[in-house]
Design a protein around this nucleic acid. Structure first.
Lengths: 237, 237
DNA sequence: GCAAAAGTGTTATTTATACACCCATGT
DNA sequence: ACATGGGTGTATAAATAACACTTTTGC
């Protein structure tokens, strides 16, 4: 079974797909596309074939731009993993996909880019229902949420969901959306404020939206990795 | 830029590579091969091309068996991620590798399988030195250690490093090898014993090796995921 | 006896969690 | 006034870490 003497591997197509999460009214949403070539009504994650000369993250960034006109720097795309079961997509032979995670707050209204696709956000819970997404994209979205939750604990990636200036309440909503449970506002505040270099208080206060006392605004600090992690025990298990 | 209308992607070869960790005298070691076709003296991770009809994990399992005759069930191989920088290996065109993590205690003396390769264990610290491994395998090994450390905290995977029956001291050495620091034996014991379903005490004691009081033997419990994780704060940062 | 590893006990410190309570704003 | 979210105080419980001490073996 010589390996490197083999010069031809049967047709394998390498794709990148991206799970782009955002929050809409505090609810986790994921960006999907509906291709004209897929009239079965199923959605798919934005993605496409990797091209020569680009890294995997660069390919994901390019595809995301082509389909949504949103710019994500490759270094802000986090790899979820490779999905390569032989029966996952046999339209053109074997398809292997490397999935990436992206996050953004307040996304622009999705508009089709140069691609003949229709892009939109759908709720995470809907995307996780069987039969809504093509191929194994349902699994990818699930893995993406798990990875995102984990990243929320270990890194400052939650701030990618916030504007440049944000309140602690807004930051808390990010965590709550991924954890699917409410967190104690008082304890959450102390927890994130104690982490040195995580968030930096500003002098100004938020413009009050609806009721409630105006909140202090914060900007992101330099800290990228949270150690020890912000950690909230799960109810289950 | 139509994507799914494209029928040919320029030559892309999809490999799997496996980082197999073991402990030799309490020191972290990684399995490497030296290929006859690579006479530059560098080592490489065991791996090869993915074949038709097999999952990525099955491919890694097969390659590992072909090169070491050690059997690892695909479900025991943990995916590290995909490595696909365009300049990582240009011998036959573009090469993308999906890396897996495996762990085993007391490995059999590596012997070359049917492949024309020489397999051996080298110390993790050596493998991490520049110029020792081919391509980006140095990075893969680093990511593998990080993932393994993380897995040690979150799952019962550390037990894969132990025999069927083991002492708590042996289990502690596994954690110490990955964390690269010593842990307090008293606190470690209490921590792992408290986790319900993690390890199960046996009646028998270990045969004393060298000095010291004989230790109680344990077997692995049913618990696969540790929640809350076993958690040891790092010194650094 | 002495060294070494297993195992128990104790204590100080930190962290998690719950929740009472005040503050500042919109309605 | 009252609802709402911001923010502080605080008590209880639990986890962490450091380390003293006893136990049981090999040498």
């Amino acid at each position: 079974m010589p390996k490197h003497t083999r010069t031809v591997q049967h047709n394998v197509y390498v794709y990148v797909d991206t799970v782009l999460f955002t929050l809409i009214d505090g609810v986790l949403n994921v960006l999907v596309v509906k291709r004209k070539t897929a009239p079965d009504g199923k959605f798919a994650l934005p993605g496409g074939l990797v091209e020569d000369g680009e890294t995997l993250a660069e390919a994901a960034s390019r595809e995301l731009y082509e389909e949504t006109e949103m710019e994500f720097r490759p270094e802000n795309l986090l790899q979820i993993g490779a999905y390569g079961d032989p029966d996952r997509d046999t339209r053109y032979g074997r398809a292997i996909s490397v999935a990436f995670l992206a996050m953004t707050p307040n996304p622009p209204v999705p508009n089709a880019g140069s691609d003949a696709t229709s892009t939109q956000f759908i709720e995470y819970r809907k995307a996780r229902k069987p039969g809504v997404l093509e191929f194994d994209h349902r699994n990818i979205v699930g893995d993406a949420r798990r990875l995102a939750s984990r990243q929320l604990e270990d890194t400052a990636i939650a701030l990618n969901f916030c504007e440049e200036e944000f309140t602690i309440g807004e930051l808390r909503i990010v965590y709550e959306a991924f954890y699917q449970r409410e967190l104690d506002p008082a304890n959450f505040r102390r927890k994130v404020e104690k982490i040195d270099g995580f968030i930096i208080p500003q002098k100004s206060l938020s413009l009050s939206e609806s009721a409630g006392r105006p909140a202090r605004l914060y900007k992101r600090g330099k800290k990228q990795d949270l150690y020890p992690p912000i950690y909230f025990r799960r109810q289950d298990q």
